[in-house]
Computed example of a mutant assay.
Amino acid sequence: MSFIPKLFITIGIILIIVGVLWQIGGKFISLGKLPGDILIKRENATFYFPIMTSIIISIVLSLVFLVIGRFLR
């Protein structure tokens, strides 16, 4: 098998694992409602900016891509 199909299979498996963990872990870790996320409610508008959630997702994705990059060399 060539490189590209293996890469797509690996990415697919990782996405399935992340999806399952997100569904199971969503009950315990309320991603999107962390301290540091900005929520402003007014009478007729709501503004939500998940800054801490974005930082955590960025760190996790950076680590995942670092590990994947080490294995693909």
Results as ranks from 00 to 15, higher is better:
I38T: 04
K27S: 13
K41V: 14
K33F: 15
S30K: 15
Y48N: 05
R70F: 12
K41W: 03
F49E: 11
L21Y: 10
P50Y: 02
I29T: 15
K6S: 13
R70M: 13
T46F: 01
R73A: 09
F3C: 07
L34D: 03
D37W: 00
T46W: 00
I68Q: 06
T10P: 01
W22Q: 13
P50K: 02
V20F: 05
I24P: 00
P5S: 12
T46K: 02
K27A: 13
R73W: 12
S30H: 15
I16G: 01
R70K: 12
W22L: 11
I56D: 01
E43C: 00
T46N: 02
I56V: 14
V60T: 14
M52Y: 04
D37K: 00
G12V: 06
K33W: 15
L21A: 10
F8C: 08
I11E: 10
I16Q: 02
I40T: 13
I14Q: 03
G32H: 08
A45D: 09
I59G: 10
I55K: 06
I17R: 00
V60L: 04
I29F: 15
K6D: 11
L66N: 11
L66A: 14
R73K: 14
I14M: 03
D37Q: 01
I14W: 06
A45S: 10
I40A: 02
I17A: 04
F8H: 07
S30W: 14
S58V: 07
F65K: 04
T46C: 00
L61S: 05
L72M: 13
L15V: 12
S58R: 00
K41N: 09
V20C: 04
I57K: 00
F3R: 12
S54I: 13
Y48M: 03
F28L: 11
S62Y: 14
L31P: 00
I40M: 04
I57S: 05
D37G: 01
L66K: 12
N44V: 09
V67H: 03
G19E: 06
I9S: 08
I40N: 05
S62V: 12
L34I: 09
S30M: 13
P35R: 08
I38P: 03
W22I: 12
K33L: 07
F49M: 10
V18M: 04
E43P: 01
L39F: 11
L15Q: 07
L39S: 08
T10H: 05
L7R: 06
T53W: 03
K41P: 04
I59E: 07
I13D: 04
N44Y: 11
F47K: 03
I16N: 00
F49A: 07
G36F: 07
S30T: 15
Q23P: 01
G36H: 06
V60N: 02
W22Y: 15
L15C: 11
E43D: 08
I68A: 05
T53G: 10
F71C: 08
L15S: 13
T53L: 06
L7W: 05
G26C: 09
L21G: 12
K27H: 15
N44A: 10
N44I: 11
L34V: 09
I17K: 01
I29Q: 12
T46I: 11
L21D: 10
S54W: 09
L7A: 11
F28S: 07
I55S: 08
K27Q: 15
L63K: 07
G25M: 07
P50M: 02
F71V: 12
I55A: 10
S62N: 11
